[in-house]
Computed example of a mutant assay.
Amino acid sequence: MPTVLARLRSAVTDAASLRSWTVDANDGIIATAGVLEGFAGAGASDATLLTAAVVATIAGGLSLGGAKWSEEAAEREAQLRVAREEAAQLELSPEEEVVELAGYYERKGVSAAVARQVAEELTAADALGAQLEAEHGIREVMARTAPVWAGVSASAAFVLGALVPLLITVLVPGKLEAWAVLVAVIASLVLTSVVSARSGRTGVLRTMTRSLTVGVGTLGISFLAGLLIF
């Protein structure tokens, strides 16, 4: 079972995990900053802004973490169900399963003789694993702790992002707060966009443009909503 340290190392070295972290961190930045801008537009006091920032950070982190945990848990249950079905089919008709596996490789362009040999060798090594990967794209059934880790990591990334606007409410005077939040959000989104683009080998400028459009747009609309309400 992977240790926490191993999971953390994977999260910062694996491109897909790193992109997921930056997306969740961006959610924390934008959602919390949007709440603050809305309250600032309504003329809220410093105490109210701080309360809003703390509540948005806690609620957002728990909500995102819970959603990720639920999503991954459902995926694991689906994988286990498929694995049970494939195991039953292997027990009832192993030869038919070998034929199906060989057919999969034939459709990939492998000759019938070689496909049959590959299917037999893979079945001898790990019959269930071969069937799951070929028929369902499941290379490895998700570990029991994976959904929990997904939820915890998503919550942590959200909170880390939310700390940017939260700290602004603590460190910056009220009159400058709205502008300071906007500047901090832009800087944070630029940084996370660069990380996300580099890890995914996509265009930095295009990724940055999308993030800033969503972020600045959210803050502007939230501020305007606060002005119109009060």
Rank of each mutant, 00 (worst) to 15 (best):
A178I: 01
L191D: 04
L166Y: 00
W149G: 04
A180K: 00
A53N: 00
I221C: 02
G28P: 08
L167N: 05
A42Q: 05
L128V: 14
A56K: 00
I168Q: 10
A6K: 02
A88H: 11
E75T: 12
I186H: 01
L167S: 09
T57H: 07
G151I: 09
I30Q: 05
E120P: 02
A225T: 10
Q79D: 09
R9E: 13
G65W: 07
T32K: 10
A125T: 15
V23I: 12
V172L: 01
I58R: 01
T218V: 06
T209F: 11
A88Q: 13
A25S: 15
S17H: 13
A11G: 01
A124H: 09
A184H: 03
S111W: 09
E140Y: 07
W179C: 01
D24E: 07
A83C: 05
V12S: 07
A187Y: 02
V216C: 07
I30S: 03
L224C: 13
R206Y: 06
E37Y: 01
M142Y: 01
Y104T: 10
F39N: 08
L18I: 09
A124K: 12
L49D: 04
V159G: 00
T202A: 08
A184N: 06
L64V: 03
R198E: 03
V148D: 06
L191F: 13
G174C: 01
E91G: 11
S63D: 03
V185Y: 11
S222E: 06
L167F: 04
E37G: 00
I30K: 02
S193Q: 09
S196N: 03
I29W: 04
L167W: 00
G34L: 14
Q89Y: 10
K108I: 07
G203C: 12
G129K: 08
D27A: 07
S196D: 02
L132V: 12
M208V: 13
L205G: 12
D126N: 15
L122I: 08
D126G: 08
V195M: 05
G28H: 05
E177Q: 08
A11R: 03
G217V: 06
A33R: 00
V214I: 15
V99P: 00
G151D: 10
E85D: 11
L90E: 09
G151T: 10
A40R: 07
V194C: 03
E97W: 02
K68R: 15
R116L: 13
L228H: 09
W21L: 02
S20C: 04
A87N: 03
A6F: 05
E72Q: 10
S199T: 04
F230G: 15
T207G: 07
V12K: 06
L18D: 03
S199M: 04
Q117Y: 11
A74N: 01
